[in-house]
Design a binder for these strands. Sequence first.
RNA 1: GGCCCCGUCGUCUAGCCCGGUCUAGGACACCGGCCUUUCACGCCGAUAACACGGGUUCAAAUCCCGUCGGGGUCACCA
Length: 524
Amino acid sequence: MRTRFAPSPTGYLHIGGVRTALFNWLFARHHGGQFILRIDDTDQQRHVEQTLRPILDGFRWLGLDWDEGPDVGGPHGPYFQSDKLPRYQAAVNALLTCGAAYKDYARPEELEFERQEAQQRKESFRYSRRWMATSPEDESRFAAEGRAAVVRLKMPREGNLVITDQIRGEVQFAWAGEPDTVIQRADGTCLYHLASVVDDYDMQISHVIRAEEHLSNTPRQIFIAQRLGYPLPCYAHVPYVAEPGSKNKLSKRKLSQYLKQKDFADLMRRGERIAERMHWATSPETFNPVVVDFYRQIGYGTDALINYLLLLGWSWDDRTEYFSRQEMITRFSLDRVNNSPASFDPQKLSAFQDHYSQLLTVEQKFDLVLPYLQGAAMVASPPTPSELQLTRQIVQAAGDRISIAGDILDYQDFFVADDQLLYEADDVEKRLVKATDAQELLRRFRTQLERADDFSAESLELLLKKFVQEEGIKIGQIIHALRVAVTGKSVGFGMFEILQILGKERSLARMDRILGQLALRQTC
RNA sequence: GGCCCCGUCGUCUAGCCCGGUCUAGGACACCGGCCUUUCACGCCGAUAACACGGGUUCAAAUCCCGUCGGGGUCACCA
């Protein structure tokens, strides 16, 4: 079993493309076959290297390894269409010779005229073949008129074709409805349909697993293969990935429209918050939730992404949600691929990420998070031992709150100098100003803290409990005020962990600073 | 418009091929509650779907026909 994914070098990896690639990869791995990467660059100019790199990097990041293709080579190369021009030329000649294709000398405007005429009559367009050359005499006559020739498929105009699709079952087409597709341009370069069929044959692809939009291209490709005497691969057309909340195909260019949807907007905002702290120059070309690299950049894990994508259109049973790589390989089959489009749901992706990130140890998370702190210049590069320790403690205390690696940047307050800490005005108002006795209680508790020689979370908790008891107050009367005093806001992780992380000196400094400011405010 | 595909909770889906066990199951989200020093996690609970209409049948989400709706594709793009 041999499958392939044939991206064109566009500079980015589309989320739907990855899903298709994943299915190809899984299918090949399941059957112990090969997964081939081939570059569809018939239409590309020179910068292939530049636009291909991000795609290959994306595959590597995701762990979708290819057995043959760019960087790794293989016995059925070349794996770049741009390197196979003579090969395609030979195929075109063969098609011409056997009468499956013809040279067409129509000018674009003449074709356009026919097309419009058909539209006016509300008929489907079918080329008249008026400028089809049927003899060398025709060719020289047309050429004398200054016409250039393209090569078109000479499609049958009667009969039907039944395709047995592995996912959709039997699909019937009438040959008469198939257009005389151009397979070679006037300048001699070849087009996708031809190249694709020739490549699939050369690379001995057994299963063509691709997006649904190619279903209607299949008849003409089968026609080419048949007339060239190639054995037909099995076809499987997977439904495309749809926009959140609709059945339209997900498209990178429609980002601004998706942003009107809350979940998508939230995801984007989360990304932008990270990008901002990292000082990234972002553009919708690469920093876009439709593009896979977006997730790598902000710190998603590949386990979550792959698992989510797997379930977008495929299922094993009525309840299994989590699959290891090995489990997916073992269980994957085409017949459990769904046949209706599935819309992309950022929230569900997040839920998978939450799950997989909870499986990580503190040390693993620590490693993931560190580059972000360095990138945001919140720690030095390389980090000092005390910064490393601080980070480790934060990761530990944050627990589930850090889901994607970039989430660490939300804990900037621990890294900022004590006299630079920003306070949420509303929180200060509510917990330190309006709350009666809050400031006084803080002052009194401060002296206790100062005397404490054990600043561990456990002993701090005992200390506060004792204080609360002695004062005859409820813990809520002081703890919120304390939190705002040392972190600047009213939400965060466990109070005693916060104090432990900051340590005595910093905790006191922060308390003193805000208490001083508030005292000053009162006298004014 | 032609051709093709698709149609189960808001979303991802199980069930459909081989009709009864489906008063339609799971997950995410949402809502409510519990836990609790806040947030998050966790736990418990609730709401929520067979597009519609005809058949066939003792019985239809499941089979047949039609309608409607959504989408894909109709390039000298891939």
